[in-house]
């Protein structure tokens, strides 16, 4: 299923983003970022289904904590989006 991975530098940051999405009623999951996507090593991502992508990005863009980067996932491959 197509989705977005909104990447945060720590579990705490990802959880806080998850709480903001919860409050807005936006479905999501917190997961570890695939190792191949992370230059810095371990990190956590908020995974949002494609249908909620725009809503989630509007909410989290410019919010604190700031996300590190965003990927669009499709069929097992990821493309980094320029925020």
């Amino acid at each position: 299923m197509n989705h977005y991975l909104i990447v945060y530098r720590s579990i705490t940051q990802a959880q806080l983003a998850g709480r903001a999405l919860d409050r807005a009623g936006i479905g999501h999951q917190i997961q570890r970022t695939p190792a191949g996507l992370t230059e810095r090593g371990c990190s956590y991502s908020v995974r949002v289904p494609e249908r909620y992508g725009r809503q989630a990005l509007e909410l989290l863009q410019g919010a604190r904590p700031a996300f590190y980067t965003i990927f669009k996932g499709s069929g097992g491959s990821y493309a980094e989006l320029v925020p």
Partner: peptide, 15 residues
């Protein structure tokens, strides 16, 4: 459990 490829401690709290 964060930024594990880097040898400097993360610059974010609480990590």
């Amino acid at each position: 459990g964060s930024s594990s490829k880097e040898q400097d401690m993360p610059d974010i709290l609480p990590d």
